[in-house]
Amino acid sequence: MKRAAPISDLLLPADLERGLGLRLLGRRVIYQRRIDSTNDLARYLARSGEPEGTVVIAEAQTAGRGRRGRSWLSSPGAGLVFSLVLRPALPPGRAGRLNLLVACAVAAGLEEVSGLTVGLKWPNDFIVAGGKAGGMLIEGSLAGGGADYLVVGIGVNVNDAAFPPELASRAVSLRQAAGRSFVRREVLLSVLARLEEYYLDPAWRKDFSRLLDFYRAHSTILDREVTVLGSGGGYAARVLDVTENGELVVRNGEGATKKLWSEEVSVRPDTGIDDKDDKLVS
């Protein structure tokens, strides 16, 4: 059922820009009632020279995408979908850190605002009460050695009262998990504040151990048996670790350890969420 968000929970840019008070993120907020994909608009802007920090946010996203085009549906008022334009001066080999940094920041921000425990399911999912509450997608241009720009897209199920039957067993909203609804602006502020703190902290570029410890502590698949779904078919493996560059370290049935990139695998906890059908409704 679609219903308009209460006036107080609209994500109006005037409110956001005033309320954010951050140094970098949200210096400019681009607001759309409806948009096909916040990442597409942010990417277009970034390619046209948009400065770092701009936030593209929409009440409703009609053609949102997850990793490799998995659809990311979102209905007005309940979900939170936004994209950030970043221009990090990253050494070429370090881009993987940004993914972990964003994952940690979003989890920390959601935990603080909701009081819930937020798990991280490699590579890109946020897990609450055993269900998928959100996800992220980083697109950009690492060509030429460093990052020209990166667009970080984040989607969170905030106030959904229910999901369609085919998703009900996998998707969850913060409202369902906490038993109360949230003001989406506050959820956004909490996430952006953590993102900015981590992103502007020069420590993570040098010493990544603190964030890596956070990531490990929040991982839902560490030390668990998973199915790795690669191009050559699936195999069972045990998750041993995640590296600071974002690789997943697994041990397969023959005892061999392997480092995995997201491009090579989907990971499916045997008792968890099926990653093959990644649809999310918010």
């Binding site: 881009a95 980083i138 990166l150």
Partner: peptide, 11 residues
């Protein structure tokens, strides 16, 4: 090109 979990546009 997907590298380090970033979807990179190749021009």
């Amino acid at each position: 090109i997907e590298a380090m979990k970033v979807m990179n546009e190749i021009e």
